[in-house]
């Protein structure tokens, strides 16, 4: 039981990192990145390929994955700069699919659908339970560090400028904010955080393959951030632990529902996850920890004509 809890906490820590990434791009800057899992995948591959095949030391591999995340994030921003939020959402969704397809089909580069097994671990797996405990310490401290850095950034002038861009790009531009640069910075740094999460997860589970990086993961992170509170780094952090905790809890809840087949129990679990989010949104539309400086009561998306309110 203890091993299971430790493992769940490590996974939740990885989700917390992803949630911090989403908080920066979506929560603070208003850029909807539905391709989050694509950056997660890129980070995992960058570190796995360099450490397993090129024999790089792991810290170097992880640093490289952050750089690659930063670079690809920047490329994606400059090619989507002029897009409205809802367009960006769908284009990034496509980006994640392209990443998965390239990873599956370019066998010479990525090893194809077989993936890369035996990715070196950060500390020896042979330590047994201590391996997982050490990883828990590493992942948790990483999540907290990234969280503190993000908190710091969020309350800095830069963070306030990002919020200004989120609330109204035109006003922000008129006020002299370098909107394009701010967006590119936020999106690239967010991509780098997701890549870091990917690298860590890859080294932890020692396996990287295209089929791991499905849209399901992006959806889960969005649920975590929404539940915790969009725009509040602490909300995203707590939301991730709650999400993974709830996902695991539904396992035990589904087990006690009498007279259902395994597939019905699995469906029940997912229904519970969906319903929980719907209820949460209904009862606390701003998440469990709402952003402290309340946003203006208008939609986040910038629409050319009119609003829904």
């Amino acid at each position: 039981m203890v091993n299971y809890l430790i493992f769940i906490l490590v996974v939740a820590g990885v989700y917390a990192l992803l949630a911090q990434s989403l908080t920066l791009s979506w929560g603070l800057t208003g850029l909807v990145n539905l391709g989050l899992v694509g950056f997660f995948a890129i980070g995992a591959y960058a570190s796995a390929m360099t450490t397993k095949w090129a024999g790089w030391p792991i810290p170097l591999g992880i640093a490289f994955s952050i750089l690659v995340g930063l670079g690809v994030g920047f490329l994606v921003t400059i090619s989507t700069l002029r897009l409205r939020d809802d367009y960006l959402a769908i284009v990034t969704l496509g980006f994640a699919e392209v990443v998965r397809l390239v990873a599956s089909n370019e066998i010479w580069l990525t090893g194809g659908t077989d993936g890369i097994a035996g990715v070196p671990s950060i500390v020896p797996r042979a330590w047994g339970p201590n391996y997982h405990i050490t990883m828990l310490v590493i992942v948790t401290s990483l999540a907290i560090t990234v969280h503190l850095l993000l908190n710091h950034l969020a309350s800095s002038p830069w963070g306030r400028a990002l919020r200004a861009v989120r609330e109204d790009q035109v006003v922000a531009a008129v006020a002299g904010k370098p909107v394009v640069l701010l967006k590119a910075q936020a999106f690239s740094i967010a991509a780098a955080i997701a890549a870091l999460a990917g690298a860590i997860y890859g080294h932890y589970t020692s396996y990287v393959a295209p089929e791991i990086y499905q849209p399901l993961i992006t959806i889960y992170v969005f649920l975590a951030v929404t539940a915790g509170g969009v725009g509040r780094p602490l909300g995203a952090l707590i939301g991730s632990y709650l999400l993974i905790g709830f996902l695991e809890l539904t396992r035990f809840m589904a087990e006690v529902v009498p007279g259902v087949t395994p597939v019905q129990a699995a469906a029940t679990r997912e229904i519970m996850v969906g319903l929980a989010l719907i209820l949460l949104l209904r009862l606390r539309p701003d998440g469990l920890l709402p952003e402290r400086n309340q946003r203006a009561p208008k939609p986040v998306a910038v629409h050319p004509k009119g609003t829904t309110s």
């Binding site: 769940i8 589970t205 993974i244």
Partner: peptide, 23 residues
């Protein structure tokens, strides 16, 4: 018999396996 769902996804599958093994 305890039946878990791997959701045809390695991340979810690993969590399910961990539960089967440790719990």
């Amino acid at each position: 018999v305890i039946s878990e769902d791997d959701q045809t996804n390695a991340e979810a599958g690993v969590r399910a396996a961990r539960k089967l093994i440790d719990v």
